[in-house]
Computed example of a mutant assay.
Amino acid sequence: MKPIRLNIRQHILDTAKPIILGKGFVAVGLNEVLQAADVPKGSFYHYFKSKELFGEALIASYFEDYLLEVEQLLKANGESAASRFMQYWNGWLTSLADKDMQCQCLAVKLAGEVSDLSEAMRLALHQGTDRVIARLAQCVEEGRADGSLPTSLDAAVCAETLYEMWFGASLLTKLRRDPSALESAMRSTKHLLGLST
């Protein structure tokens, strides 16, 4: 007997995420997602009017989950803000190394692929990354306040610069299949933050 799923829409999105991380958005057909989710095609169109709107919902869902993880990592827990901030970047480095240089970030995977194909998906990616950068900037502000990061840092500029650098480094890692770009990003991050290398 099949288990009853209370949220079929979310089940479709959760099932699709690893498939699209592996193959990309354009290469994945709806039938592949629906078969993996064990959901009839008619159900898909009840929840998503088109593949583009499905993609937009997938990105929004990804960022909701991701931001919860980021919040858990960055929230005040007795450690300095600088320590929590560096744990975030260490996570980027180790997650790629643990996955044989295969990026697990849907934003990195889809940014180049869908930004020219779908304005709705581009905006969802843009809004999601802006929210991540804003949370990172908050952590920098906390570091300035607790003395673990230089007070001379502009929190918003610092967060945006670092996120852009790591995003680009992740793309280069996909190309090179080695961690050199991420290792360089880590050195540059420590230098920018005035932390020992």
Rank of each mutant, 00 (worst) to 15 (best):
V108K: 01
L96S: 01
K190G: 02
T197P: 06
Y47K: 05
L162I: 10
G168D: 07
L53Y: 08
D154N: 15
F44K: 12
M186L: 07
E52M: 07
L136M: 09
A16G: 07
S50W: 09
L93I: 07
A16F: 10
F48D: 08
T173G: 00
I4L: 14
L21C: 04
P40R: 10
E64A: 15
I59G: 11
L182Y: 09
T129Q: 01
W92F: 14
D98H: 05
Q35S: 15
N31H: 14
A185G: 02
I4M: 09
I20W: 10
A137G: 03
C105F: 06
K49Q: 09
R176L: 04
S152L: 11
S148K: 10
N77F: 11
S196I: 11
D130E: 03
A97T: 04
S43Y: 09
L110C: 05
P179Q: 02
V33K: 03
F44R: 11
F63Q: 06
S50G: 08
K99S: 15
H46P: 03
W92Y: 12
S115N: 12
R5T: 13
L67T: 05
S196F: 12
E64T: 15
E71V: 00
L6V: 09
L30D: 08
A37W: 09
Y163L: 12
A81R: 13
R135I: 04
A27G: 07
V157W: 04
N77H: 09
I4A: 11
